[in-house]
Design a protein around this nucleic acid. Sequence first.
DNA 1: CAGCCCATCTAGACAGTGTCTAGTTTTGCG
DNA 2: CGCAAAACTAGACACTGTCTAGATGGGCTG
Lengths: 216, 216
Amino acid sequence: MTADHEILTKPEGRYHHGDLRTALLRATETLIAEHGTGAVSLREVARIAGVSHGAPAHHFGNKDGLMLAFAQEGWDRMIEAILNAVDADRPGDGPAFLVSVGKAYVRFAITNPGQFDVMFRRDLYDLKDTGYLGAGDSAWVFLEDTIQRCIDEGFAPRDAAQSFTIIAWSMVHGLAALWNSGRVRSRFEKLDPDVLNEQMNEALTTMMFPGRPVQK
Amino acid sequence: MTADHEILTKPEGRYHHGDLRTALLRATETLIAEHGTGAVSLREVARIAGVSHGAPAHHFGNKDGLMLAFAQEGWDRMIEAILNAVDADRPGDGPAFLVSVGKAYVRFAITNPGQFDVMFRRDLYDLKDTGYLGAGDSAWVFLEDTIQRCIDEGFAPRDAAQSFTIIAWSMVHGLAALWNSGRVRSRFEKLDPDVLNEQMNEALTTMMFPGRPVQK
DNA sequence: CAGCCCATCTAGACAGTGTCTAGTTTTGCG
DNA sequence: CGCAAAACTAGACACTGTCTAGATGGGCTG
């Protein structure tokens, strides 16, 4: 119905689509957003893109491949979103940097609940796939570097890198997952998620670095 | 193959199963454990239970109903597991009580990854279902009471009930979810999950209640 | 104990799905 | 221009969820 949709539909009378892979990923995103993850089918995304029912298999191998590609795209998008947020916030010290990262993580999750969900759904595709694990690994490494910076600045014990990384990731991931599950949200109908996100990340970081000098 | 399996299979020559509802839930559990959540189908659980393909619909309405019942059973089991753990640990103060609860939460999640997953999969069934939300609510209320006890004992500010509840739940839920996703586990192949669970919950509670007197 | 209601379960049909195959169209490259 | 490979089509098949109509028998009423 939108211009986007037209671009993603195969031009009439043509045999080749042009950018079918992208079109199928966008169709997947639309389906998940409008009807949930369960509504995704190879035949439906093919229909939306205006191609035959067998076409998607050529680009993704099978349905698992489509979901995996969608998850990988999600990791790329999330890392990009975090980098942008950090750029915008210009945090002064390590803990402030961590707050910026945590807020961006949760914001990405609650603004892209469908894709975030797929990124952690190990039943949708082969977990051993190197690309999938690789994408998640870069997120881990990024987070670990953030913690390491806090350690280098004297905010945390020198041997805390791994445990603090797990703690930080667990905190923001749990908050995001619970919010998206609808269980937390249902108790804060009138609360702006961004406000909750801000408050939680500030509180969590304060707990992690109790001796931290307060930033203006 | 096991005795359990035989009990759950319809007695030969009989028309009525006896306890088909339970048999179907157990078949669901087995399928998820052995082949993942995606392997669950009404026809396959019917096959395992030795009944016709249409029988499950009578007990659960449709597939969503089966998954919802499985999720509800999960909530019941988790609350029971937490109560048992608290009984066994006999924690002295509020924070120790919280550690006991948190450890039991994570332990349930990593020993029942399939069921835990389904409990938070809002795409598998209608989120507005009162039974589903009700089960989750009792968990929230239980956790909030635990936090309230910490407040009453002077370990946390009086107005911290809600935010501390979110923080605590986010922590343990995030840890459980990340572990089950395989991303954390892949980095600690040789580490006993129970050890990580213990250490994390102690560390997290120490962060939440920094002034807490150390327990023996 | 007899009769009957209704929960339980069967069996067939139907549209929709993933995946496989063989074949058709088009692109890109020497 | 020629041609191999990539992109896509179209049909088939087994499987799925759900809907129907009907068969069975457990348990309650009288």
